[in-house]
């Protein structure tokens, strides 16, 4: 069973990324904060007695469900709901930036002197590109790579097959690379 300290440490470690995940999805700070707060409360109330190692996957399932609930409520509330799949067309771009990327090593290429000067701008562009991803691609990408879940865990959190996770992740990566390339960022 997770102790109070373990649960506290886990939430402290994950809360900022959770907020960003929710923000990318709902694009509203207050709504994103509400989603994270509800998710933390639900984890604590319902699963506080679970072992600490089960908390990451449980929390991500709760968070993703909360985000999906927000979408459902938004759809029923307003007909002005704008499609979040507007940028899916990017995947049809015949030139794939990943095909031409030459990565020399594992060092983050965003951290070049020029990019360092434009760090804030780079972050803004990357976050905007993520926001513009189709929801399922973004969800898969963030869970798999940012949260560090493996493919099976990502599939469990998303409620889909492992094959779908691989497809979403691959498409997300290519779409992101293309979107960043149009802004002059080539990793």
């Amino acid at each position: 069973m997770a102790s109070r300290a373990e649960l506290s440490n886990f939430l402290a470690e994950v809360e900022r990324r959770a907020f960003k995940q929710a923000l990318f999805a709902v694009r509203d700070e207050d709504a994103a904060l509400d989603i994270v707060q509800d998710s933390m409360m639900r984890l604590s109330e319902k699963y506080g007695e679970k072992p600490a190692e089960e908390l990451p996957l449980l929390f991500q399932r709760i968070l993703q469900n909360a985000i999906r609930d927000f979408y459902r409520r938004a759809r029923t509330r307003s007909e002005r709901f704008t499609s979040l799949t507007a940028f899916e067309g990017d995947a049809e771009d015949p030139t794939d930036p990943l095909e031409t990327i030459e990565l020399d090593d594992d060092i983050n290429p965003f951290a070049t002197p020029h990019a360092a000067l434009l760090q804030a701008e780079t972050l803004s562009i990357v976050e905007e590109a993520l926001q513009n991803l189709p929801p399922r691609q973004r969800e898969a990408f963030l869970l798999r790579y940012w949260e560090g879940l493996d493919i099976a865990e990502t599939a469990a959190a998303m409620g889909c097959t492992e094959g779908s996770v691989k497809t979403h992740c691959s498409r997300a990566t290519h779409t992101l690379a293309a979107a960043l390339a149009t802004k002059g960022i080539r990793p």
Binding site: F19, K20, I101, L103, F110, T122, V126, H174, L176
Partner: peptide
Amino acid sequence: RDREEQFARQVCHVLDRGTEGL
């Protein structure tokens, strides 16, 4: 796949900086 994962790690590195400066 290696390229995809390497690119994803780089993107996540930038995102981490974003959470630090929240």
